[in-house]
Computed example of a mutant assay.
Amino acid sequence: MIKIDQGFIRGMLINDNDRILVETIIAMAHKLGHRLVLEGVEEEGQRARLSVLGCEVAQGYLLGRPVDPTTLLQAHLGGNSAPTDAASPRGVV
C-alpha cells in the first residue's frame, strides 16, 4: 500500500507540479501492482479527479471526520448509537 501525502493532494487542482506528481505516483504504483490510499481529500473535485485516475481508497474530511474508538465500534458493531457521518465507511473513491 502506498500513501500519498495530503500536501500533494491539497494542491493538485491548482498546482501543475502537484498534479503531475500525483498522477505519476498513481501510474507508477499501479504498474508495480500496489494499491493506493490518498490522504487529505477535502474537496469533491479532488475525489472526482482521483477516481478517474484509478485511486482505490481515500482519507479526508470530505469522506468523514475523525471519531473516538467507542463511537466507531458502536457504529460498526451494532451498538445502540446510530452511525454518524464521521463513522460511516466512505473512504472508497
Rank of each mutant, 00 (worst) to 15 (best):
M1G: 15
M1Q: 14
I2F: 15
K3E: 14
D5T: 00
D5M: 10
Q6I: 05
G7S: 12
G7A: 10
F8Q: 01
G11M: 11
G11E: 15
G11Y: 10
G11Q: 15
G11D: 15
M12N: 01
L13A: 08
L13G: 03
I14K: 12
N15T: 12
D16L: 13
D16S: 15
N17G: 12
N17K: 15
D18Y: 00
D18W: 04
D18R: 05
R19A: 14
R19C: 11
R19I: 09
I20P: 06
L21W: 09
L21C: 13
E23I: 07
E23G: 03
E23N: 14
I25F: 09
I26C: 00
I26Y: 08
M28G: 07
H30K: 13
K31E: 14
L32V: 08
L32Q: 00
G33W: 02
R35I: 11
R35D: 14
L36P: 08
L36A: 09
V37L: 10
L38H: 08
E39G: 01
E39P: 05
G40L: 05
G40E: 03
E42C: 00
E44L: 02
E44H: 03
E44A: 05
R47H: 07
A48Q: 12
A48K: 10
L50I: 01
L50T: 01
S51Y: 10
S51Q: 14
S51W: 12
V52T: 14
L53P: 05
L53R: 02
L53Q: 07
G54E: 09
G54F: 03
C55I: 03
C55E: 02
C55H: 08
V57K: 11
V57R: 11
A58G: 11
A58Y: 09
Q59N: 00
G60N: 04
Y61V: 07
Y61W: 11
L62F: 07
L63I: 01
L63M: 07
L63Y: 00
G64E: 08
R65L: 00
R65T: 00
R65Q: 04
P66I: 01
V67S: 07
V67A: 11
V67I: 09
P69M: 04
P69Y: 03
T70S: 08
L72S: 06
L73C: 13
L73E: 15
G79E: 05
G79Y: 04
G79K: 04
G79R: 05
N80P: 15
A82L: 11
A82I: 07
P83S: 03
P83Y: 05
P83T: 01
P83N: 06
T84Y: 11
D85Y: 11
D85Q: 12
A86K: 04
A87Q: 04
S88R: 15
R90S: 12
R90T: 14
G91E: 10
G91K: 02
V92T: 14
V92E: 15
V92S: 15
V92L: 13
